Simulated assay, not measured.
Amino acid sequence: MDFAAAVSTVATAVGIVKDLRGIEQGLDKAEMKARLAEILSTLADVKMALIEAQEESREKEAEIERLRGSFALKEKTIRFNGFSMLAFEDGTPRGMPFCPRCETVDGVLIHLADARGSDCLCPQCKATYSRVPRYLWER
């Protein structure tokens, strides 16, 4: 349930309360209890909807922060020999390149890792690359 549905449910509960206030003298105890149970059920639905909406909001905020970090890192990269790589301040390549598949398909920057021989492996998607340039991480 989203925010709009939660607001609609609250409006329903408020409407029931207004009805009760206007006709409370004409209701017997059983009818009053039934109406109160309906209100409590509606408010429980609202509470669950707001909890779900809050969790969804947290997940979206986390994804936004992850994307901001990814974009910040992307600004510090250069293209070299077909790979995106970090660069030193003078623009020379630094460290291991990023996985082209993860960068293109998933939009994330994952450093390749050394594998057997001269190959490199992406620890995320498991893609293997040959003849990968490797550079110093620090000077």
Rank of each mutant, 00 (worst) to 15 (best):
P100T: 12
P100R: 09
F88K: 14
T104N: 04
T77Y: 03
F88D: 11
R68T: 12
S84D: 15
F88C: 13
S84G: 12
R66L: 10
D90M: 04
T92D: 02
L86T: 07
S70K: 04
P100F: 07
T92P: 02
G91D: 09
R66P: 03
E103V: 06
R68V: 14
R101C: 01
G95L: 00
A72F: 05
T92M: 01
E103A: 10
S70C: 07
L86M: 08
E89S: 00
T92W: 01
G107N: 10
G91S: 10
F88N: 12
K74Y: 14
F88R: 15
G95S: 09
V105W: 08
F71R: 12
E75P: 08
S84H: 15
G69F: 09
R79A: 14
T104M: 00
T92K: 04
L67Y: 11
L67R: 11
F88L: 13
R79G: 09
T77G: 02
T77R: 08
D106V: 11
L73Q: 13
R68Y: 14
R94C: 08
G69P: 05
D90Y: 08
K74E: 13
K74C: 03
F88M: 13
V105K: 09
L67E: 14
T77C: 12
C102E: 04
E89A: 00
R68K: 15
C99K: 05
R79H: 14
E103Y: 12
L109K: 04
V105G: 00
M85L: 15
R79T: 15
R68H: 14
K76C: 07
R101W: 08
R94L: 08
G69S: 11
P100Q: 07
P97W: 02
